[in-house]
Design a protein around this nucleic acid. Structure first.
Lengths: 146, 146
DNA sequence: TTTTGTGCAAATTCTTTGCAGACAC
DNA sequence: GTGTCTGCAAAGAATTTGCACAAAA
């Protein structure tokens, strides 16, 4: 479930502008694409999609813009084994469920089991958690037998 | 806390041999190093350490052996942003706490908050979890102010 | 006009691969 | 002896960087 793509689009744009960034057509398109993407695309997927509308856009520009948006806290980078995927809808840390069969990436916020995690880390390990990355592999409801 | 390095050493060796792998001096040394390493080394760290004793060892051999041990379930690969670290002591999935100040990697098994995770995923998302990767960033007890 | 963004190609970094010679069994 | 392992160098893949040109403000 994606929360208000238009609001995300505006917020990303506003943040970029507020920080003195320029609103080029390529950036507008990438930000828009991020705001409506539910499938956690990687840089190549974004690049290929954008190229349909902007045949001259370069992969480097996609990366540079993603780096900028990450720094502004407007995009979450999901580190997978050899590549990164990006979430522009929920730019805050949250779990992801990855189906090992169909390779879908499902948002797993709302997980109650994690609610107490940072308090427990503080208590048990005296560890002050600021960020986390949780990727869970398995079979999604469509790929699960029966 | 590391659990019985000698046992791990023997188990890794036995598994390798059982699967028809050859016990070369380089492999013995790497497996031994993994069994006594508490600091979750990466391939380069292992390579540099091994080179003190075996100046001719190559990084490729380190990678090839790690790949083999991973396939045999004797080493856990920890995916970090641009590189992998390895755990030969606890080759099963478990959380890691990474200090953003001193870059220490702390084992975080024993976390109670996760005990119910896979049952909850099954219930809430109909997702059948088989594996996970959890990395938590923050400040360790030594680096935390006061 | 001035500063920032862009495309291109080259560079980086981690990891894998191909192959001829070396070694375990 | 035979099949596997090794080192080397080259290849791969994702990402970053340098630079001259282009475009936003």
């Amino acid at each position: 479930m994606m929360i208000e793509p238009e609001l995300r689009y505006q917020t990303m744009l506003d943040t970029l502008q507020k920080n003195g960034g320029r609103l080029t057509s390529h950036r507008l398109a990438l930000i828009h694409l991020l705001s409506v993407s539910e499938d956690h695309p990687n840089a190549m997927m974004l690049y290929q999609k954008l190229r349909e509308q902007f045949p001259t856009i370069s992969l480097a520009t996609v990366y540079k813009t993603l780096t900028l948006l990450k720094k502004e806290g407007q995009v979450l980078e999901i580190d997978l084994h050899t590549e990164s995927h990006y979430d522009g809808n929920k730019p805050y840390p949250h779990p992801h469920l990855i189906c090992t069969n169909c390779h879908k990436i499902i948002d797993g916020d709302e997980i109650k089991s994690l609610k107490n995690l940072s308090a427990e880390l503080e208590e048990t390990f005296l560890f002050e958690a600021t960020q986390y990355q949780l990727v869970i592999f398995g079979l999604c409801r469509e790929c699960k037998p029966e």
